[in-house]
Amino acid sequence: MIIFDFDQTLVDTSSVEHLRAARNWKAVMAQASKLPVYDGINELIQDLHKAGQTIAIVTKSPDMVPKAFIKAHGWPIDIVVGYHHVKNRKPHPEGLLLAMSKAGASPDATYHVGDQPQDTEASRGANVVAVGSAWGCTDTAELEASKPDVLFSSVAKLRDYFVVELGLDG
């Protein structure tokens, strides 16, 4: 199973961060379809799905934004755990554990891809592989200091990793 964080991992949401901070979700949703998906993400998600991987999104945001992307881009993602689905948000592992429970996945076969130290901490709490995604970060120092199991500066390098780890078609 592959669990992705959403903001700054799959999609560049930096242009609506001020709206998110103000909890203006209506304005965020009005901009959602215009937010850029990082290069290679659409293909990676399709490749993971073709390889039989269950894919989930666990986010500290409400689930409506990732669900809009899933619909707009035809992403084969069935599990979305958002702000309202958990009592404890990241860095607590509750969201990851919920996603794994829904998928029937075990920690030893689960990867969590995220751009924040809280993602690494949540991965540790859930006993899954912590994958750092630095491609959406302006400053990677905190992510590097959190010591994820692996850290990638591009989606292409993450895909190469999954080619080896999961046997994706190279």
Rank of each mutant, 00 (worst) to 15 (best):
A27M: 05
H18G: 15
F4C: 10
V113W: 06
V81I: 14
T54M: 00
V58C: 12
D115T: 03
E165M: 09
Q53E: 12
D5T: 02
A30I: 07
D7K: 09
Q8Y: 03
L143C: 10
M64F: 11
A122R: 01
T110V: 06
H92Y: 05
A122F: 00
V80R: 06
S133C: 06
F162D: 09
V28E: 04
P148I: 03
K34T: 13
E121D: 10
Y38A: 11
M1F: 07
A105R: 04
F162A: 10
A122M: 02
R23A: 14
N127L: 04
D119R: 09
I79Y: 01
F162N: 10
H92K: 05
L35G: 13
I57R: 07
D160Y: 06
I79Q: 00
D108V: 11
L97V: 09
G167M: 02
V155I: 15
R20A: 07
L158N: 08
Y111L: 01
V164R: 10
A105P: 04
T138H: 14
I41M: 06
V65W: 08
V129N: 01
K50S: 12
G114Q: 03
D149Y: 07
S133H: 03
V80E: 04
S33Q: 14
A72T: 12
P66G: 11
T9P: 03
G82F: 02
V164I: 13
A32S: 15
Y161K: 05
A72H: 12
L98F: 08
V65T: 10
N42I: 05
G95K: 02
A72F: 06
P107S: 12
I3F: 00
D39G: 08
R23T: 13
H18S: 15
Q116I: 05
G95V: 02
I3G: 00
T138W: 10
E17C: 00
R20K: 06
T138F: 13
H85F: 03
